[in-house]
Design a protein around this nucleic acid. Structure first.
Length: 111
DNA sequence: GACCTGACGCCCC
DNA sequence: AGGGGCGCCAGGT
């Protein structure tokens, strides 16, 4: 239902927005937390958010390997890395350094 | 209206 | 351990 879709997008934006500065999350983690759709849908939702000029820190969301898979979707592809580095997240070869330690679990919202 | 692709991830071989 | 395939849902062609 379109109803559910809107809710899904809204939830994705909400969760993404809760990612603390200097921390990052993954598509899979968000999808798992929402228990809806799939990681792919999360990325899709985020792409829409960027197009809508939403205040969603999509740059803090990477794939499960810690790679900036979505960098190519930013206005300047390098913007994603720059923003992350600006927040204290080190990026090396399009990959987040110590990604595992910087990883933020959406599950933290429940607690 | 059908087919393909897309910010991914897991299961199977 | 590495590679390939399928699932996910929606949107564009």
């Amino acid at each position: 239902m379109a109803f559910r879709q809107k809710q899904y997008y809204e939830q994705v934006y909400h969760v993404t927005e809760q990612i603390p500065v200097g921390r990052i999350s993954t598509y899979g983690a968000i999808a798992d937390y929402l228990a809806l759709g799939s990681a792919r849908m999360v990325g899709y939702a985020l792409s829409q958010s960027n197009a809508n000029d939403m205040p969603v820190p999509a740059h803090r969301v990477v794939n499960r390997k810690g790679e900036l898979s979505g960098r190519h979707h930013f206005k300047p592809p390098a913007a994603m890395q720059e923003m992350l580095e600006s927040e204290g997240v080190k990026v090396e070869d399009h990959q987040v350094v110590d990604f595992k330690e910087l990883f933020w679990h959406p599950e933290a919202l429940d607690e």
